[in-house]
Amino acid sequence: MLVTWKYRPRNTFIQRLDPRTRLIFLFSVIFALTIPEIWDFRIILPLFAVSLTLYLMARIEWKDVRRAWLFIIVFVVFIVGINGVLSGRGGPSSVTNIESPILFYVPLLRELGWKVPITVSKVWFALNQIVRMLTMAILAIPIPYTMDPNIYGTAFKRMGASDNFSFTMDLAFRFLPTFARDFTITVDAQRARGYEMEALKGGLAERIRRLAPLIIPVVMQSTVTGEEVIDAMDLRAFGTNKRTWIKQLHYAPRDYFILGLGAAIFIACCVLKWGFGIGGFFVPDFFTNWLVG
């Protein structure tokens, strides 16, 4: 059992970007879709294409992201999508308010005769919702694979976070392999004493309680380590003055391009929705015709 970062250096455009650029762009797209409440497929689809392009440019191997994708697809399609088809709620009220042809009924409580009508607008809403969520998710997925763990603290500092917050982040990334190693050693030591990790017996409470021999030693050792680190930092006068950071970040022209793109997406969505009334939910005729005929 080995804790390894998902990050690997790859010579790609995405990895050459400043980490701040990528985080700001991610938030630009999230805010562009959520603040003006964009539900128009004519805006969502191009944004999805931009996100997908950036995702593919990251050149992450499928075997690395297979599990993450499985989780997201199951979640988005089965929990969010099916709920959208059944209820039509979560987005704009127009999904359930507009007149829309009923495709079929889903009997939920057969005894009570409760049947949920599945309308064209609910189906279109569910599709829009899935694509909208995927647009944001596929920008988020590549971050652990393509952003150097050692740069998170510096990136947040340069984005305006305090020294204390940024240093906590930096320190956490440095502590992580140590604690992961401690955890591995603890697991091995307990196994040597006959602890059967793969066959935890008893009820649920008992199973959780029996995790204590794995967790307690690592946590308690870490509290002791903490005191030593505090002493070391106090001796170096941490917190008395502004800190300087070893790693430096500099924006390149490509960063300005992506930042400009992010700003343009956000502004365009706001102007379209609030200035021209474009971006709200509607069911296109071609979809209704295709389903109803």
């Binding site: 982040m169 604690f179 690592v218």
Partner: peptide, 14 residues
Amino acid sequence: VVYGAIGAALYGVF
């Protein structure tokens, strides 16, 4: 700062 980092690292590992 230190215990925040330790807590974060442990939370991440577990």
